[in-house]
């Protein structure tokens, strides 16, 4: 059986990739994808713990979380659409009329 720590490590790696992507990319879609990655890394954790603790809660939680992620993506795309309509681009780092 694969030790728990391997799952945790995988989740951490996926989370880090997502975080890295979020902080470096300018494109809104890519950032959205990175956020999804991070949420999914957390799901990996939940499922792994669930299986190791022999408890179904974690897997149920993961399902909820996936659903929420989907909803989040929907909202995210809706916002990006609005941005695109207004500016003809989705470079998030250009959004800085609100600052200081």
């Amino acid at each position: 059986m694969i030790p728990l720590n391997w799952y945790l490590a995988l989740s951490a790696i996926v989370f880090s990739i997502g975080l890295y992507g979020l902080m470096t990319h300018k494109n809104g879609i890519r950032m959205l994808m990175c956020v999804e990655l991070m949420l999914n890394s957390a799901n990996i954790n939940l499922v792994a713990f669930s299986s190791y603790n022999d408890d179904m809660t974690g897997q149920v939680f993961a399902l909820f979380s996936i659903a929420i992620a989907a909803a989040e993506a929907a909202i995210g795309f809706a916002i990006l659409m609005s941005i695109y309509r207004m500016r003809d681009m989705i470079d998030v780092d250009k959004l800085n009329i609100l600052r200081w």
Binding site: L4, S11, A42, N45, L46, F49, N53, G58, F61
Partner: peptide
């Protein structure tokens, strides 16, 4: 979610 995961774990 990560934090909750750890607590759950």
């Amino acid at each position: 979610l990560l934090g909750i995961g750890y607590v759950y774990g």
